[in-house]
Amino acid sequence: MHAPVLVLAVGNPSRGDDALGPMLAERLERAALPGVEVIVDFQLQVEHSLELEQRRLVVFVDAAVNGAAPFELRSVRPLRDASHTTHALSPAAVLETYARVTGNEPPAALALAVRGSSFGLGEELSAEARHSLESAWQELLRVVTTGEGSGRGRSAS
């Protein structure tokens, strides 16, 4: 039986602010909240669509190179995506792949896009990202415990 809430955090811990996703996931794993499962990967891929089965809510967590600081919380709907040269899917494309492959409606989904600014190999987290991390952590906790978006940021992606 899968946990009803899945947090799918992506990013590379050794590429500066790209570590935001894995760092938030690590905090969440330490919190060990009942009913919440955390999966961390370098990037979203097609097989992650299979992780959506039997979920009530999926929260995608990733660093963002644009958008509002310190973070945006967006609802995500299945969407065809054109970024097919990157070896990585957008959250919307993961939902779409799930729907197409399983024939089922995907679960409700949110994307927590945490603003970063520097993504060089071997870099530490930037000052901006450290600030974003704290704000985003409070929001992530609230979302996984209440299952609701706050309305901050755009409403869809």
Binding site: N12, R15, F42, D62, G67, S83, T86, A88, F119, L121
Partner: peptide, 12 residues
């Protein structure tokens, strides 16, 4: 093309 970093909003 975009080795190792995949923050949201990148251009392929």
């Amino acid at each position: 093309l975009s080795c190792a970093t995949h923050a949201l909003g990148q251009m392929p």
